[in-house]
Amino acid sequence: MTEAVTAAPSRTAAAVRLRGVSKAFGSAKTRLLALDQVSLDVAPGEFVCLLGASGCGKSTLLNLVAGLDKVSAGTIDDGGARVALMFQEPALFPWLTVTANIELALKMRGVPRPDRRPRAAELLDSVHLAGFAKKRPHQLSGGMRQRVALARALALTVDDTDATQGTVLLMDEPFGALDAMTRDLLHDEIERVWRDRGLTVLFVTHNVREAVRLGDRVVLLSSRPGRVVEEFPVPMDRPRRIDSPEVASLAATITDRLREEVGRHGA
């Protein structure tokens, strides 16, 4: 009885809830356990950064949350929330112009036709690509394509009623291909959108400082199989600067822990 009562509020307290999630690839012979018993709660409106070495299962985890793959064991509950995923690759439709790529996402979110063009223009402006609406993806550089992909992911958090509250935005190393200056600008931008729209963000990165700059919480994953090793709350006020001493000092702590984790595999 008491259990049920205490369980009820915590059910609503998580926007995404992972319980004992495992994912194995391959057949019985070539079986590779990518994720092992991962449990994680992300609160509504929370910005969580997932950190881990290459190949530890971060993309796999996001794919599972987005419903693109099936778990091997465990449960994922997103309470039927709208989920938007930005892939590690830009994954833009090459036959559409930049603006048409974004307009298609808006269309799929039920934005009426006359509103799409201006909304797409706003989104492109927010990733500082206003002048490139008519280009095709292959005419852009890798970093610019990533920014278009970001705009498209943001378009997926929109709907006709603008009730974006509760949308879960999953981002897979969105800024990996960007130069430092552009990245810093987009950190500000993503933080603004997150706050304004009340999004819940699960953000994957290799970059420890980036994780500390952006996250309310940094979750460290181990490699092969991926497990949650440790969680670091980030107490600093926003907006933070990526080159501030506080960010650097927490990042150093997390990096040490990450090194330790990676080192266990060398031994």
């Binding site: 987005a66 693109l68 690759e89 996402a105």
Partner: peptide, 16 residues
């Protein structure tokens, strides 16, 4: 396949 995944995330199904 990556485009199919992107389409799925957008909610493209059936005729669309």
């Amino acid at each position: 396949p990556i485009l199919l995944r992107a389409g799925k995330v957008m909610g493209l199904r059936g005729l669309n």
